[in-house]
Design a binder for these strands. Structure first.
Lengths: 345, 345
DNA sequence: TTGTAGGCGTTATCAT
DNA sequence: ATGATAACGCCTACAA
């Protein structure tokens, strides 16, 4: 079975009209008669005609493909963002070309330099890079880029959660629960969102007149394992904290696993707050207090913004910051010995 | 800043040679002199030339894009499969175009009928459909399709986990723990993988001379909520089961949440086994016994297979079945009252 | 309203 | 080893 493609030429020949007329009819142009249009559409369906996007792209200079570049996809946040992106992209008939950087700057550069780029109308990116040359190059070529989650100082549209205030609230909440010795376990220093959450943490301490101990701020990777490591480091110190605010739920959970290992009562003796509101927060015991991120909305808004940039050459960059919400659960409640009905007298 | 693209013409002009020579040099063809080749490559780098994949695709009839069609991406299994696909695709310089069907057959058809398809060299799909006309159409056009996870009876390459044996082992394990009244909560009837897991369950019962109670087999959706619903239904029956084998971890977890609500001791009084080995299995209390799926390998193998089909027109379809592994944890252990050191006298 | 012709960037088929 | 030239499928002035 050979891949015999039906083109507008076939339709034109069968109908004894010219290709341009067929093209017009297919694109629902204004200057075609209703009858010919219907004739063409019928014939197209009959022959099971599919447009060749390569050809269309070549002649129009666009592809209806947008690139999405993210570190990973195996976590709640990014997979939900993608779902949000997909919804909008699908509505507007755009396809998503997915790239995973594995959180490696080099890989991200490779992807952006060597590959495609001619095949993409625009790019949505959560960058893991500290140097932005590769991104600059693309933007200079006139390819619209919208950043989300992990943003930076470049002059482009950005969509993200409110990292600073989320962190501020999270930390303040721990303080309101009577925890004063609060550590922060976070990611690499050169990420802006990491920096913002750190600032939120620091300012919350300051605001409540609590001292900052630099030794209680641990920079490490973003994974659950890193969270566990961080907690070990903290508890090995001479001055131990009695609560932590983690940069994300993964690390918070790693810390919780380690705390359980060390037989420390989470909630009562040690407060834990994460960031993201991964569904796992409600499944782990004790349930994890966190700051929710509107991942789906971040994806859909970022995509809408990108499509606008694609449509309008010199749209002024816009920065959208979505508020988070502190969701209080057991892991941060001093009084949270869960009382089950069955345990009541 | 206009999108001024550098083409091979520019290189040709600057070097005072013909475009065909440039093209040859760029493609590392055999009939170019070493010097011109190097000259061209240097100039290309200097001008920051990027090939136009649309044009290349148009003239070669290929795009280096493969489509990946899945129901969701917000779960461990699919996001891990994608990661596996990505690894291989990246190695071979293929791009991934992602489509989410949201588990809606209609949407899947729309995607395959209306959209692209001319823009894809091949397709990897985990179909949610019960009717395969839309897939047939594509395959008839000569576009290679490889199925994974959710397969079917079509004559094409397939890669999947060993659903039958996994289910058989899972059920047998529950029986070996002394559970005899075992229910099965599963998905819609018309999925083949669902059917296979059901058969594994049934044959395990039969093999151990246990009766089959049809009322203990619940068909419903795949979500956590559905799992909770299913358990409610089961416990509302006059004859209640004392263990369940769930078609996936999500449903198992939904059931566990509901069991906790009803104050039923999981493990000791009620056995639960899932399927997938989502990382959440080790985080929930009690930890969840499950059958591991090699999601990453399924992705990478499926992608390799697809690339072979793309390369070789009439490659004979191949079916790869990856074995799972029963991972025994607390949720299925009758004797698994977790004894913490702190609780010891 | 329709048809003609040239072009998008690249590759492939001829010559030279 | 290199150069001209015609595709690839579609779009779009321009002409009719």
């Amino acid at each position: 079975m050979l891949r015999q493609t039906i083109t507008i030429k076939d339709i034109a020949r069968e109908l004894n009209i010219s290709v341009s007329t067929v093209s017009r009819a297919l694109r629902d142009a204004f200057d075609v008669s209703l009858e010919t249009k219907q004739m063409v559409l019928e014939k197209a369906k009959e022959l099971n005609y599919k447009p060749n996007y390569n050809a269309r792209g070549l002649s129009q200079g666009k592809t209806n493909n947008i690139g999405v570049i993210i570190p990973f996809i195996t976590n709640y946040y990014f997979s939900t963002v993608i779902t949000g992106i997909q919804k909008i992209a699908y509505e507007y008939n755009y396809n998503i070309v997915l790239y995973l950087t594995n959180d490696a700057e080099e890989r991200e550069c490779q992807i952006m330099n060597n590959l495609i780029l001619s095949g993409l109308d625009g790019i949505l990116i959560s960058t893991c890079a500290s140097n932005y040359d590769h991104i600059h190059k693309i933007m200079d070529k006139g390819v619209p880029v919208v950043f989300f989650d992990r943003t930076n100082s470049l002059n482009a549209s950005k969509v993200k959660q409110d990292d600073y205030n989320g962190a501020f609230e999270a930390t303040s909440h721990l303080i309101s629960q009577g925890f004063t010795k609060i550590a922060h376990i976070t990611g690499p220093k050169d990420q802006m969102f990491t920096q913002n959450r750190l600032n939120g943490y620091l300012n919350a301490l300051e605001h409540h007149n609590l001292p900052v101990r630099k030794k209680w701020i641990i920079h490490n990777g973003f994974s659950q394992e890193c969270g566990a490591q961080d907690l070990q480091k903290l508890m090995a110190k001479s001055k131990k904290p009695e609560a932590i605010f983690a940069v994300n739920d993964r690390k918070a959970i790693g810390a919780m696993v380690e705390l359980k290992q060390q037989n420390i009562q989470i909630g009562k003796d040690f407060g834990v707050v994460g960031f993201t509101n991964d569904p796992i927060c409600t499944l782990i015991t004790p349930t994890l207090t966190t700051v929710s991120e509107s991942a789906f909305e971040i994806g859909s808004i970022a995509c809408e913004l990108l499509l606008k940039h694609i449509q309008k050459e010199n749209l002024i960059p816009k920065e959208v910051i979505l508020p988070g919400e502190l969701i209080i659960r057991e892991s941060s409640m001093r009084s949270s010995t869960v009382v089950k009905k069955a345990d009541l007298p």
